[in-house]
Design a protein around this nucleic acid. Structure first.
Length: 489
DNA sequence: ATGTTC
């Protein structure tokens, strides 16, 4: 079997077949225990990147999980994560398959939304510094940051049950926001009783906060439209100022993941599950523990939807103060990047319900899928792909090809190229800030590390990641956005 | 990602 050019020093030394320009395969014969092939979407350059960490080993390991259907999938932004790679997709048979907290990730329902203004970039630039300062003031950011809302137990449970719907009841959201959020901002079958007291304690002061790491609030403008009719139907136009919010379920979701990893790990032997990596802790979907995790995950996901909705509200308040009626913001869409969901897919010629784990991957449904309401039923689902703070972000749209190959999924971002430690050592925060300013981008972060670890050079080139997606036909480009200002944790 | 080692 052909091996592709693996330079010395790469960590991956296994079998990797090149199927075409954007598809690479690790056959199940590679390693005992693999139940299906691993299929990686990439380019010759991006697959090289994936060979430099544990991405491919992890993608092969996921192919060993009981009940996995079709392929263990990796997106072009893949990089190593906890057990599963980030940029991984795995769909499980609901009868004999497993659910794995590591297949969702620590930040349950980490996700991203795009708010559209009606303002052209030239009208915002004169007030850009003021806008960045006001947003930095209005949106709590950073590790352990807390917000102005203190929730009692009853209210927190209400958020865990209702997500964005709770925000609507308190006038933090509009009906239009709900219609433009995946799952209408309310995952089905949440159970607050499955969320530990410790998780609730961590979450009860963190609603409406950004957090740290790769989370951000960015001011952007539409730089290029690739598909005009779709852009028109989404409400996107050249020069338009937009706001991208990227964050998740904060300490609450993190604790839910931690709790269930320690619950499931010791139980695997009793379910006769043997896997090569303890980070792949899992239980059958049909087991009590599997069901409990899914209902706790749904509750944490609802917290994340409400969290992004509150940050939306703070952003609208600032825009209204600075631009009045002109500063109105409409939500294009809100997508989850870290989630396991029950969905109907065609497998081996028949429609069946499967559990799709997406970890650092975005649902990308085509026109006609019943989950999509209103205009998206005709256009297909908007897919929002953040890049890095210096280059670009994208809006894509879902395709039928994705349903056939990736259970309706695409990448979730650029994907890290270097570790946080390496990124920190490589550049000074003041240099990155100066470079961004020279490019007309104003960045404001709570810590210097927040900037160095998230420097553009720490990420893969988003243009190439997105090119791999549309070359494979699993998503189409609608618009590219450029950064103007960024708030970091 | 994360009260960045209960």
């Amino acid at each position: 079997m052909p091996k592709i050019g693996l330079s010395t020093g790469t960590k991956w030394d296994g079998i990797l077949q090149t199927r075409d320009d954007c598809r690479f395969v690790i056959p199940k014969s590679y390693k005992a225990g693999m139940l299906v092939d691993a299929l990686i979407f990439a380019s010759p350059k991006l697959i090289e990147y994936a060979c430099h960490d544990l991405s491919l080993d992890q993608t092969a390991n996921v192919a060993m999980l009981p009940g996995i259907l079709r392929h263990s999938l990796a997106m072009p932004d893949v990089h190593q994560g906890y057990g599963f790679p980030i940029g991984g997709v795995a769909a499980m048979d609901t009868e004999d398959g497993v659910v794995s907290p590591g297949g969702v990730g620590f930040d349950i329902n980490c996700g991203v939304r795009l708010l559209m203004s009606s303002l052209p970039v030239q009208e915002v630039r004169p007030k850009l510094r003021q806008l960045v300062d006001a947003l930095f003031e209005a949106v709590p950011a950073g590790t352990g940051s807390t917000g102005p809302i203190k929730l009692n137990h009853t209210e927190l449970d209400s958020i865990l049950r209702s997500g964005s719907q709770w925000a609507l009841e308190h006038n933090w959201a509009t009906e239009d926001d709900i219609e433009h959020t995946e799952e209408r901002g309310q995952m089905k079958q949440p159970d607050p009783a499955q969320v530990s007291e410790r998780a609730k304690k961590r979450g009860n002061s963190q609603l409406g906060t950004l957090g740290s790491g790769n989370h951000f609030l960015e001011i952007q403008y539409v730089d290029e439209i690739f598909e005009r009719p779709t852009a028109d139907s989404f409400g996107l136009f050249e020069g338009q100022v937009c706001f991208m919010i990227h964050c998740g379920s904060r300490g609450l979701g993190h604790q839910v993941c931690t709790d269930f990893l320690s619950t499931m790990g010791p139980l695997m032997a009793s379910y006769q599950i043997t896997l090569p990596d303890r980070e792949l802790a899992c239980c059958p979907i049909s087991s009590p523990e599997g069901a409990r995790y899914l209902s706790a995950m749904a509750a944490a996901a609802n917290f994340a939807f409400a969290n992004r909705q509150l940050i939306t509200f703070w952003t609208r308040q600032v825009m209204s103060r600075l631009f009045g009626e002109q500063g109105r913001l409409k939500l294009l869409y809100d997508v989850a990047h870290n989630m396991a969901k029950m969905e109907k897919h065609r497998v081996n010629g028949q429609q069946k319900e499967v559990l799709v784990h997406r970890k650092g991957a975005t649902r990308a449904f085509p026109p006609g899928r019943s989950e999509l309401g209103g205009a998206f039923l005709i256009s297909g689902q908007p897919v929002i792909i953040p890049g890095d703070m210096g280059r670009a972000s994208y809006v894509l749209v879902g395709t039928e090809q994705a349903m056939e190959e990736t259970f309706g999924s695409v990448c979730h971002g650029a994907g890290r190229l270097m570790s946080r430690t390496r990124a920190r050592k490589q550049r000074k925060a003041s240099d990155i800030m100066a470079e961004l300013e020279a490019a007309g981008i104003i960045a404001k972060a709570t810590t210097r590390d927040g900037l160095t670890e998230e420097a553009p050079a720490a990420y893969k080139p988003i243009d190439e990641v997105v090119a791999a997606v549309y070359n494979a036909g699993i998503g189409r480009r609608v618009a590219r956005l450029r950064p103007l200002g960024v708030i970091k944790g």
